[in-house]
Design a protein around this nucleic acid. Structure first.
Length: 476
RNA sequence: CGAGGCGUAGCGCAGUUUGGUAGCGCGCUUGGUUCGGGACCAAGAGGUCGUGGGUUCAAAUCCCGUCGCCUCGACCA
């Protein structure tokens, strides 16, 4: 009876995936809805995940020599219009401030939807000589995009992200950086989020407004839909020309720099929820889990139980584990379900029986297996080993699922059938916009990324020779 | 912006067809018994029924207006 009530708190992942997702992010107290439509309030438990993402990613950026900086939230409207494609791409979704200080502003201010323009403006001032290059910066901030429909983490009117912006003396360097950052994201997704991704170049249609080339990282969700989880853009000289980013080269000639940018957002949290989650709720990868180990005391009023739990918690804390001792007076069963729903990777139950035998009962969230073979004396080692194993298994499971659900198609009908079945479809493409639009119209699927090799022979639409082999999927 | 649905206690809902004392579950508060998979008992607090007008002896319920939210279609990290 009580069990049924718990299960019913979260929709069925198999039959009602969108509802399941909403339940998970709200009921596990990751987020709440904000008073302004389309905004979300990230609660402490959800924000702790983001902090872990930030820490891990920031460390990687710094290793490659990228420095953090901060640029203003407000961008003069005139900046936005300097790059033609850029303004066209973002105009429909920018929020504009027209009044401030009790008066109408001479020039409206755009609330940044992304910072290429204002950073381009500053780069124009900062870059004078080849000695100033490369200039590689990143900022952690919020951006606003007035989307028509929203969903927590996946698409909100305001979201948190990281945007890196760099300028180089040559196009080759900027392009290389674009690919390096894509690889960095892929490695990060693998080792921190335990999430397999497809990476590759985007088609012209899916390209960033104002870019020469866009590369993307796509993750496969439980329902077979794709989620763009990160992008890198090579801008060529487009923004450098628009904002006068010029330098004097070694040869004394004045020339424009080459810029690139890259970003990932709080959408990553949505991606990992939908990659690893199950019928009981969240399953968090240990590197980003706010709580990696929860200790649940059993018969906590019995002598010695709480003391033993506290001692274990202290030891694990010293070993660098994010550990929580749940000494609230809820019943153990309640705690089990609560922390499982919240995705804590590992639970240790400690009661009189365990203490007497010198062992601890350990429960793995990802496999739902309970084991009592671990010695209390070796707790640090056991926990470290288990968390590492969970990472590996989470990745392997998601990777297998993705691999099994990437299929080839030679015709539009096949493509539609496979996409309907929740698959990604690998198919040939002649390279023209009409055929790409046809796929969207016929199967509601879009070109996610272009495969590294062109192995298909014919375009899935028109039958002409294939220019690229493309991964098609429905997308969030 | 096109189509559909919903606004009643903190949350989830019933009540509306056929007007007649404002209800249920969960949660919350207090006390007690519990504790190895969402425990139980007892007592208690909590609502201008989204909002404005109208009909009526009487409106959550009927009529007109209005606001807000959710889902699905065109854009996006």
């Amino acid at each position: 009876m009580a069990k049924d009530q718990f299960v019913s708190q979260i929709a069925d992942i198999e039959t009602d995936f969108p509802q399941w997702y909403t339940d998970v992010v709200v009921k596990t107290k990751l987020v709440d809805y904000g008073p302004v439509k389309g905004t979300m309030v990230i609660r402490p438990y959800g924000y702790a995940i983001w902090e872990n993402v930030q820490r891990e990613l920031d460390a990687r950026f710094k290793q490659t020599g990228v420095e953090n900086a901060y640029f203003p939230l407000f961008i003069p409207m005139s900046f936005m219009t300097k790059e033609a494609e850029h303004v066209e791409g973002f105009a429909p979704e920018v929020a504009v401030v027209t009044h401030a200080g009790g008066a109408k502003l001479d020039e409206p201010l755009v609330v940044r939807p992304t910072s290429e323009t204002i950073i381009g403006h500053m780069m124009g001032k900062w870059v004078e000589s080849w000695r100033d290059l490369p200039l590689r910066m990143n900022q952690w901030c919020n951006v606003v995009r007035w989307e028509k429909t929203t969903r927590p983490f996946l698409r909100t009117s305001e979201f948190l992200w990281q945007e890196g912006h760099s300028v180089f003396a040559t196009g080759e360097e900027a392009e290389a950086e674009t690919l390096n950052m894509l690889r960095l994201y892929e490695e990060f997704a693998h080792s921190v989020l335990c999430m397999p991704v497809l990476t590759g170049r985007k088609t012209e249609k899916e390209k960033f407004a104002g870019a020469v080339a866009t590369y993307g990282m796509e993750a496969m969700m439980h329902d077979g839909k794709s989620l763009q989880s990160g992008t890198t853009h090579y801008m060529g000289q487009n923004f450098a020309k628009a904002f006068g980013v010029q330098f004097t080269g070694k040869d004394g000639a004045l020339q424009h720099g080459y810029t690139m940018s890259y970003g990932v957002s709080t959408r990553l949290i949505g991606a990992l929820i939908m990659t690893h989650g199950d019928a009981r709720g969240l399953v968090l990868p240990p590197p980003v889990a706010p709580v990696q180990v929860v200790i649940v005391p059993i018969a906590s009023k019995k002598e010695g139980v709480l003391e033993a739990c506290n001692a274990l918690a202290d030891r694990l804390k010293k070993a660098g584990v994010r550990v929580k001792l749940d000494d609230s007076d809820n019943s153990p069963g309640w705690k089990f379900n609560e922390w499982e729903m919240k995705g804590v990777p590992l639970r240790i139950e400690l009661g009189p029986r365990d203490i007497e035998s010198g062992k601890m009962t350990v429960f793995r969230r990802d496999t739902l297996e309970k084991q009592d073979c671990y010695l209390l004396a070796d707790a640090e080692k056991a926990v470290e080993e288990l968390l590492r194993q969970i990472c590996e298994d989470l990745y392997a499971r998601a990777e297998t699922r993705m691999r099994e659900r990437i299929v080839n198609a030679d015709t539009l009908d096949e493509l539609l059938k496979e996409v309907d079945g929740g698959n990604f479809v690998r198919a040939g493409w002649c390279g023209c916009r009409e055929c790409e639009d046809k796929v969207k119209e016929f199967a509601q699927a879009t070109a996610r990324v272009i495969d590294k090799e062109n192995t298909a022979k014919k375009c899935v639409v028109c039958g002409k020779p294939s220019l690229h082999t493309v991964f098609f999927a429905r997308a969030y």
